[in-house]
Amino acid sequence: MSNFKIDIREKENINVIDLKGYLDAHTAPELEKIFQNLIEVQKFNIVVNCEELNYISSAGLGVFMAYIEDVRKHNGDIKLSNMSAKVYNVFDLLGFPLLYDIAKDEAEAIKKFISVKK
């Protein structure tokens, strides 16, 4: 039984990744594949909706770290949204709110992409 699930959808030309469950060293390679696929097809505007993400370890953070520069180089971004306090605390402990754009909710994250385009 897997304790992690990823769904991907498109909303207003933005790729939204929904994460559910536990993102650790066992499940991080699944997220890695999703990022690789998106970058391969030149999709650089990505929102990661963390509403149902219960847990993240440094292996999960490492996936975001590995691709953030790549997408920004192509004028894209990885924006994170709907984080629980528990998941946010891990980012905060490492000072990562300085590195990532963390939005309150998905709509706000998408709006930030659209306002940049205009």
Binding site: G62, A66, V90, L93, L94, F96, L99
Partner: peptide, 22 residues
């Protein structure tokens, strides 16, 4: 050096640092 990490994002090396913080 977290500033360096943020200026030059890369994977790895965070586990031990996290353990010390936690």
């Amino acid at each position: 050096d977290l500033k360096d990490y943020i200026d030059h994002p890369r994977r790895g090396g965070l586990g031990i640092h996290l353990m010390r913080l936690l």
